[in-house]
Design a protein around this nucleic acid. Structure first.
Length: 301
RNA sequence: GGGCCUAUAGUUCAGUGGUAGAAUUUCUCUCUCCAAAAGAGAAGACCGAGGUUCGAAUCCUCGUGGGCCCG
């Protein structure tokens, strides 16, 4: 019996992950599971750079378009859906290929982070939102001193989540992991900063000419999402919301969005850096493709 | 040709004689259910030359660059 195997394709935005995943899937009998926190939303297509039907080239893609953008998705839901998809792919004798740029989502699968069984409590969150960071910290300290000691005490979002867990469970459990049983190959795609910057710009203009602005306008007109929600979604949608509301000119919108995407790419880099298991490949090099395939063949043996 | 205003961080601006401040940019980092999110940290400047003064970004003179007015 062969061991279960999982291939992960990760990297910063605009490094060509989707293409590679499809290519590998075609060649090695695989299916793709997206690891992208925004492509889970229906209708957010051009702005999120979601793969199109024709780009999929017949390869099934999972955990794409699974929820309305009105709803707030979470990593717990992601983990459940992704793990189901992976198990299903394996049961059909195919190779699961996890592909995306959301580091936290990938980590949840690869390390099998066990998340506390406490669903988001919007009422509580709303209530806590009115408190200052200091007040939040004081509350957490009373509930769970251990967690309070190690948490980032300036970060309201983390503090609120911690309080949410502690109110429900009494204490916050230690971080537990239960990694999947098989082997995992993590392929990281990288570019130099200069090349990545160039690619980000090119891609942004491509998205605009593909109708990104109209997509956003339609979502608003059809009341699928509000300006507020659009801002929450970040990056393209955040700046498109500002533009469509008239707070920014088109030129400014594009400039600011470009910087924001760059910052995002930097954060991705910081995140992926700490996982030493990732095998990195410079995709600007001509032989990157060969090297990756060699690695995959070795892994699948 | 004459007069007036102005020059501080990559950028936009504070600072009126006593250790140069912010916003933004840039860089680095954190991450147990919003992660394209949220949060932390670092770097970086007084146009040049003289003068006054214990001490000048600050006052004076000249130069240079920029802006404006009159003829």
């Amino acid at each position: 019996m062969t061991k279960q195997k999982l291939i992960v394709v990760l990297g910063q935005t605009a490094t060509g992950k989707s293409d590679l995943a499809v290519r590998l899937a075609k060649k090695y009998n695989g299916e793709v599971i997206s690891a992208d926190s925004r492509q889970v939303y229906k209708g957010l297509d051009i702005g999120t750079g979601k793969i199109t039907k024709s780009e999929m080239k017949g390869i099934p893609h999972h955990v794409l378009d699974v929820v309305s953008p009105k709803k707030q998705f979470s990593i717990a839901e992601y983990k459940k859906l992704a793990e189901e998809a992976i198990a299903n792919i394996i049961s059909r004798g195919k190779i699961p290929i996890l592909c995306g740029g959301t580091g936290f989502y990938i980590q949840a699968i690869v390390d099998g982070i066990v998340l506390p069984k406490v669903a988001p409590n919007m009422k509580l969150r709303k209530h806590l939102n009115n408190k200052t960071t200091k007040q939040l910290y004081a509350i957490l300290k009373k509930l769970d001193l251990r967690r309070a000691r190690e948490i980032d005490k300036n970060n309201p979002r983390r503090l609120i989540r911690a309080i949410e867990i502690a109110t429900s469970l009494g204490k916050i459990p230690h971080l537990a992991v239960s990694p999947p049983s098989g082997d995992i190959l993590q392929i990281g795609l990288k570019l130099t900063d200069a090349e990545l910057k160039k690619k980000i710009t090119i891609r942004l203009f491509a998205r605009i000419s593909r109708g990104m602005i109209n997509e956003a306008r339609n979502l608003l007109h059809r009341h699928i999402i509000s300006f507020v929600r659009m801002r929450e979604l970040g990056l393209e949608y955040k700046y498109l919301a500002k533009y469509l509301k008239g707070e920014l000119g088109k030129k400014e919108m594009i400039e600011q969005l470009e910087t924001a995407i760059w910052h995002y790419a930097k954060r991705q880099k910081t995140w992926f850096k700490r996982d030493k298991r990732i095998r990195w490949f410079d995709v600007s090099k001509k032989d990157a493709r060969q090297k990756i395939e060699k690695e995959v063949i070795k892994f699948l043996k």
